[in-house]
Computed example of a mutant assay.
Amino acid sequence: MSHGTSTLTRFGAIREYPADLAAVSVGALLAYGIVTSFPDGSELRLLVTVPLALFLPGYALISVLFPATERGTQEATSTPVETRPRGIDLPERLGLSFALSLTIVPIVAIALPFTEWGFNTVSTAAALALITVALAQIGVVRRLRTPKSDRFMFSPVALIARLRRDDTAVMTASSLVLVLAIGLATGALLIGFLAPMSAGGFSELALYGENEDGDLVAGEIESEIEPGESVPVTVSVENQEGEETEYTVVIQEQLLEDGDVVERTQLGELETTLADETTETSERSVAPTAEEGETVRISVLLFHGEPPAEPTNENAAEDTYFWVTIEE
């Protein structure tokens, strides 16, 4: 007599389809749809990324490995020679789901760069959703082939009833609290890593001057010039925003008193459009208008698109500066 065979009709199989695995499959597909439909920085996109990366793949894998429920102590001792799929209870499933998910995600991250799709948000979400759904369906088959008396069934009502009457209720409740705490802590950590990524990337602004060998070096900018002279400087803008971006660079002379800007003079403006992951450098000659004996700050301000009516270091997307003293 073969173990775990089933003569379920097609309708019966659908009726006995595990609700938890159905929810896991639908949740994975829904998460993939949201990730690919909503823009970077969307709170909803970040929210669905957490279970897709942290819980759903591991839970689906656990369903494949452990289709049976936990065997009671009396049952285990009374039938020592009986062979059946080893089972685990709900707290163990939840805890192992987090652990296995954290194992699956790095494997996906390592494998994707070697594929034609590459490693990015969409391909990662697609891979995790596909793995989750595939494992969940295998888990369904495994459960339906397990005898009903041994089969794991997700039932919150039964769990609550068990907590009320079982002698090990305190231990079970403690396990659930521990699993929840682990999930929240790991989820917060994952959000911490994902939040900067979902913010849309970054732009970088840098200034360079030429050294004695003619090489561009940060910090090698003249700090003392005579009246009427200009300062040669190279402005570098790097686009890592994840998309083509329009920039405006404003070069501004600022006179400061007690740390506050009391006078601003615009010395130049540069407009450019950069594709993602590209850098543009531009050589400029900055001619301060300050009088002899004055020290002014030359601020270079980077804006996305058109700058505001009064550009400042505070309202710029990125800013950098150097000091110049006018003297004979």
Rank of each mutant, 00 (worst) to 15 (best):
P156T: 04
I225W: 07
E243Q: 14
A275D: 15
R151H: 04
E246Q: 05
E224I: 13
T245D: 07
V157H: 02
G219R: 11
G268F: 04
A206L: 10
G228A: 15
L190V: 10
I160Y: 04
V249C: 05
T279K: 11
T172Q: 05
L255G: 01
L159F: 11
S282G: 01
G219Y: 10
N211W: 14
D166Y: 11
G242H: 09
L270G: 00
E280F: 04
L178C: 06
A188W: 05
A218S: 05
E224H: 12
P227N: 10
T278G: 06
T245V: 09
R284W: 11
E269F: 13
A275F: 13
L189H: 12
E263P: 00
L267R: 14
T186Y: 12
L190W: 07
A218Q: 00
D166F: 09
L194F: 15
L256Q: 02
L178V: 09
L274R: 07
T248W: 08
T265E: 11
R162E: 03
E226Q: 15
S174V: 03
T234R: 05
E269Q: 15
A158M: 11
P196S: 07
L256E: 02
E212F: 11
G201T: 08
T245S: 11
E263N: 12
E257M: 00
G187T: 12
G259P: 01
A158C: 05
E269I: 15
G209R: 01
V233S: 06
A161P: 00
V237Y: 05
A161Q: 13
E238S: 13
R162P: 00
V170S: 09
Y247I: 08
T245M: 02
L190D: 09
Y208N: 02
V157C: 00
T272C: 01
V177A: 06
L159H: 06
S203H: 11
D260G: 00
G183S: 06
T281D: 08
I225V: 08
S175Q: 10
E280L: 09
V249H: 10
R165L: 10
T279F: 05
I191L: 15
T279A: 08
S175W: 13
S203R: 12
I225T: 03
A185E: 14
A173T: 05
T172I: 04
L176M: 05
G259M: 14
A181C: 00
E204A: 13
S175G: 15
L207Y: 09
V237I: 11
S285F: 05
E280V: 09
S282W: 08
D166L: 02
G200M: 03
V261Y: 06
M153V: 12
D258F: 01
T273I: 05
E263G: 02
V170K: 10
S285Q: 14
V217N: 05
L205W: 07
A206C: 09
E257C: 00
V237Q: 04
S175F: 12
V249W: 06
D166W: 08
A169S: 11
D258G: 00
S223T: 15
G259S: 14
V250L: 12
L190M: 11
L256N: 00
S174K: 03
V231W: 02
T186D: 14
M197G: 15
D215E: 14
M171E: 14
E224V: 12
T281F: 08
Y208K: 03
M171H: 11
R151E: 03
P232K: 10
L256F: 01
G259A: 14
L180I: 14
Q240D: 13
T172Y: 02
T278F: 08
E210R: 02
V157Y: 01
P156L: 06
